[in-house]
Amino acid sequence: MSVLRPRTLSARYARTAYLFLLPAILFFAAFFYLPIGNVVSTSLMTGPQADRFTGLGNYAQALADPSVRHSFLVTVAFAVAVVAGSIVLGLALALALDRPLRGRVAFRMMLLVPYLTSVAIVGLLWRNILDPELGVLNRSLSAVGLPEQQWLNTHPLLTIAAITLWQSAGYTMVLFLAGLQGIPETFHEAAKIDGADGWHRFWRITLPLLAPTTLFVSVMAVISGLQAFGQAYIITNGGPGDATDLSVFHIFNVAFRARDFGYASAQSVLLLVVIVAFTLIQLRAGRRGEVQY
């Protein structure tokens, strides 16, 4: 009786709240918390059915496995390149656009377009452009007598990082633009009166006051860089050799090609721990460096 007809108002509101929340509670339990529990429990299993308990065996194997270590290092290098590129390129474009310009909206639109494309388009298109024989780049270069490129063979990791930047630079630019617009104009005016030139104003005012945006951009870029998959799957197939064997691509292959769900789960958990650790370190470092105004 009391469950159906709560006596107090606050109990009635609580009942309404839980009623409205019910689908969400069920969803997040079934599709987030249950899978997280399962990935941990599967990581303790081995065998083709992942049904033999092995304790921490998969973790020990992963930490000692040179191919896992290699793919992790490749992934970190890739993420570092993407983070650095995102900040430099995104900020440069935002600074260029943060002023009254003719065609400002059109520029912003063109710069943002690749962000809307699927990784399938990004991957297939750039694989075609850079293909040593069939690619439009080499066919154009040789037609005008310039030396051909082999970037996907000579610098595969940097090349797929650059392709990733092609897609994401517009996104970071918009984030930086929003950050720039949050800096009160009075600071720049005061500095101008004090005789600071543009260069000084950038280093002493713009950059420190942009710190929260820079932090957010770098956290997002690290998180997405460490879990890149399509670039390796579509463009390089992890190669040449294992030069672009990004971690999630490696995990995907262990799980769905070698069918070792236990080993793949352990590697997923390890990568998750790394991502969470990176994020917490960045947030802590960022909070210490934050400027109040």
């Binding site: 997040f28 599967t42 879990q227």
Partner: peptide, 17 residues
């Protein structure tokens, strides 16, 4: 907290489910 969970973590258990 679920914001901190990248999709690849859910991929294998979701496939099994």
């Amino acid at each position: 907290a679920t914001l901190m969970v990248p999709f690849f973590v859910r991929m294998i258990p979701l496939y099994v489910l």
